Structure formats: structure tokens, C-alpha cells
Simulated assay, not measured.
Amino acid sequence: MPVLAERPLAEFPIGNITLQAHHQRLTGITVAARAWIHPDDLSRLVPGSISTLTDESGTPLAWTGEAPDPSQSVVAPGSFMIVQTWDLLRANESWVGSLSEDRIEGEVHANAVVEGTLQLGKGSRILPGVYLEGNVVIGENCKIGPNCYIRGNTSIGDKCHIGQSVEIKNSIILSRTNVGHLSYVGDSILGADANLGAGTITSNFRHDGGNHRTMVAGELVDTGRRKFGTIIGDRVHTGINTSIYPGRKLFAGTSTLPGAIVSRDVQ
């Protein structure tokens, strides 16, 4: 997992909250280390009747009491084990999509449009011409805009810049990463301290509409996703007008030249 090469899974942010912190918020419930629990599934735990949530294969995800109890279990349809990198996108979609209350601690310009739920951290500014559609989470001390389009369910970390004529869709962007101008990032994960050169474009849809496949440990794996862009590790820099095929990964510290076409993983 390129974005996990320098951080444990427990410290990866889902909606700008670490997975470990999500687990700790579930008081009285033990959660498997790699599990994501959809908020709606918690209502399936019924004291004295249902004590364990499992996935479709029967693997315990969360439970009350000292240990999972197969005799008092129920399948949690929105919950799952995080096994592959793209499962982080699914978890982010689950959490950000469930938000229903704004929390705006930064500044939203009068000429920006917000249609959906927005959580905006302290010191962050949303500049004129920005259009936010769907649920969006933005950290502290970010500069968003001018004239960019961000649509749900997207989370952006601290000290990021999303700028002129940039579109971000259903993505996770970690802290101190810049997508300054003329770029498209869809259904993707960008690591920390990355910089996308102007005109960097991620492709996220196959011409035949089929599921995307990507290389994992030398094998081509079906992601189960019809929309899947790129996974970019920490400190990656792309040259201007870089085009990235769906499902390709750029590992931490790598870079591309201007005009590059990324048809294979960059390591």
C-alpha cells in the first residue's frame, strides 16, 4: 500500500480522523484492527441478542463482551475489513457520506457555493468561485480555490492547496499536499507532502465500463470498483501534463517528467 508505506493503518485518516480514533469512539465495543464499521451498522448490536458484527464471510468485525460470539452474530452490510488500498476509499465514502451537520471554523467567501455538508478546519479559506457539491471534509490552514470544483465524498488534510481550475471527486488527500491548477483527481488517494504539476490528470473509468484491475505483489487484482483513479504515496511530484491510467500507483518519493503517461506503477 503506497500510502501506508510510512504510516501504520491505525494512523491513516478517514475523513481526517485516524482509523484508531474511529475505533476508540465506539465505547463498549471491541473492533478488529483492520475493520471499518459503518455508523448505521452499530444499531444491529442488541444487548442479550446480537453481540457480534461480521462480514459476509463470517469474519468478526466488532463485538461487545470479551470475545466474538458466533451464536449471537449478524452480518453488517456496510462494514468490512480493510485489506487493500482502495478499501480506504470505501471507508472514506462511508464516513464522509454519513455526515449531516456542518462544522465551519474557517472562512467561506460569499462568492463560493456549498451544496452539501461541509466540515472546514480553523485557518482554512474557501476563495471565490469554489463550488463544493456533496459532503466535503477540509482540515486546518488550507487554501481552497479560486475557481475549483470539489465533490463528495472528499476529505482533504491540513495545510493543503486545491487551486485554479482543479476538480477533485470522491478522493482522500493527505496533509500538506498541493493540487494547484488545471488538474483532475477522481476516486484517488494522494499521500502527504505531494505536489501535482499543472495539468496532471487521473483517469478513473474504463472504456468498457468494467471493474478496474491493479497490480498487487506481482498479480493483477480486480478491485471491484468501476471508478478508481490513482494511489499516490508521500512526497510524490508529478511533472506538468502528467496523465495517469486508472489503478496505477506512484510510490513514495517518486516523480514523473512533464508530459508523462503513467501506464504502469512507478516505484
Rank of each mutant, 00 (worst) to 15 (best):
R248P: 13
G48V: 06
G218F: 09
R125W: 15
A21F: 13
T54C: 12
L53S: 02
P246Q: 15
D265V: 15
P2K: 03
L61P: 04
A21R: 10
S51R: 13
H22P: 15
R206T: 00
L4E: 11
D102C: 15
P47M: 04
L9W: 12
Q72R: 12
N141R: 09
V236S: 01
R264T: 09
T230P: 11
T30W: 03
K249E: 13
F228K: 04
T30E: 04
E105G: 06
L190Y: 04
K122S: 10
I150K: 10
S255I: 05
L89T: 03
V137N: 12
G233H: 08
H161P: 01
S79Q: 03
L220S: 13
I104S: 05
D40S: 15
S171G: 08
I244M: 12
L196Y: 07
E93K: 02
V114R: 04
D40E: 09
S98C: 07
V136D: 12
Q267G: 05
V137I: 08
I244R: 09
V46D: 07
R25P: 03
L250K: 06
E93C: 03
A192Y: 14
M1Q: 15
L19H: 06
E101V: 12
A198R: 02
P77Q: 05
I29Y: 01
G58K: 14
T85R: 01
E11M: 11
S183V: 00
P60R: 07
N195C: 07
A35Y: 13
G210F: 03
V216R: 09
P246M: 10
S243R: 13
H212F: 13
I172Q: 08
R7L: 14
I29T: 00
S155T: 11
G134N: 14
D158Q: 04
E133N: 12
S51Q: 14
H237D: 07
G129A: 07
H38Q: 14
T202R: 07
S73T: 01
I14G: 09
K227H: 13
I17N: 06
I156F: 11
C160T: 09
D55E: 07
R235F: 14
N153A: 12
W95G: 03
G15Y: 10
N135L: 06
I150G: 04
E105Q: 12
D55Y: 04
I232G: 02
S165C: 11
R248C: 14
E219M: 14
V74E: 10
Q72A: 08
T200V: 01
L127E: 14
E105P: 01
